[in-house]
Simulated scan of single mutants.
Amino acid sequence: MSSLLYYFPKAEPFYDPKQIPAACELDHLAGAKIKTSSKVYRDGPDGGMGAVIVVEPGGGKAAKCGIYPDKQTWHPVRNGDQVTHYLGWESENPPGPSDLERPKQVEGHPVELGDGNKWVIPCVHVPSPANTMPMAYTIGDDGAFSLSLLPGYEKLMEMSVVWHDRANSSESFRFSHLEFAEYAVALLAVNYHVGWHEVLRLALIHTSAAMFNEIVLASLGGPDLVAYAKAQKKSGTPTSGSEVSVGDVG
């Protein structure tokens, strides 16, 4: 496995992710380190000149910086009608979880994705302490003690509430492939430097019921609830809970 490559048309080499143009929408690279950067004078993925950067992998070996058409895979990334950059990797060494992991990991449950590797899905919508999302101890104006989700995870929490409510509904629910893909990408972005294009181009998520169930269950703390129920059953204590099942894909 190896690291990701990014090519920016007509750009000069740079080593600070903050220099990435806003139009590229690569906010998920915030906090990542650029291993190497080089100038491409011609024959870039777009046929022109620009800059290539190699994102330093969390583990494994960094990809070779430069344009090597016979050994690399490149995909254009669009924002509207404009191609803002290209996403690439070494064809025989596509990046895996250890290459893309963030320095600070949020605990969760490993789920095997489309590349055959285990990726850690954080527990989002479950009661503390099973919830593994970063929380801060806070105090309100009324003096009441509480736990508050750290900034940056609000949208994911809102998404998880929808899936939690569906999972606990007594009726079958419908969802679209797009909606599930957006949720899966948001979950993966917690622990990995990935976004929409990285996850989909690497074909990490599939339509299989097994993968859907595992991802949603992990995000809702399903493995923890199952373990708790088994422990309670062993001790002879009655339990109650909910079961997550696949809805109808719309």
Rank of each mutant, 00 (worst) to 15 (best):
Y7T: 03
E12F: 07
D16I: 04
P17S: 10
K18I: 06
Q19I: 02
P21F: 09
A22P: 01
A23H: 08
E25G: 04
L26I: 07
L26A: 06
L29T: 05
T36Q: 13
G44H: 07
G48T: 04
M49R: 08
M49W: 14
K64R: 14
I67V: 13
Y68R: 11
P76R: 01
N93D: 06
S98H: 10
Q105C: 01
P110E: 00
E112Q: 15
E112T: 15
L113H: 08
G114R: 14
D115I: 10
K118W: 09
W119D: 01
V120T: 08
P122T: 02
H125V: 13
G140F: 00
G143H: 11
E154I: 10
E154C: 12
N168Q: 14
S170R: 12
E171A: 11
E179L: 02
E179A: 05
E179R: 02
A181M: 09
L187A: 07
A189E: 10
V190R: 00
V190Y: 03
Y192Q: 10
V194N: 06
A203F: 05
L204E: 01
H206K: 15
A210H: 15
L217S: 15
L217M: 15
L217Y: 11
G221P: 08
A229I: 05
A229Y: 04
K230W: 06
G236I: 02
P238R: 00
S240R: 07
V244G: 08
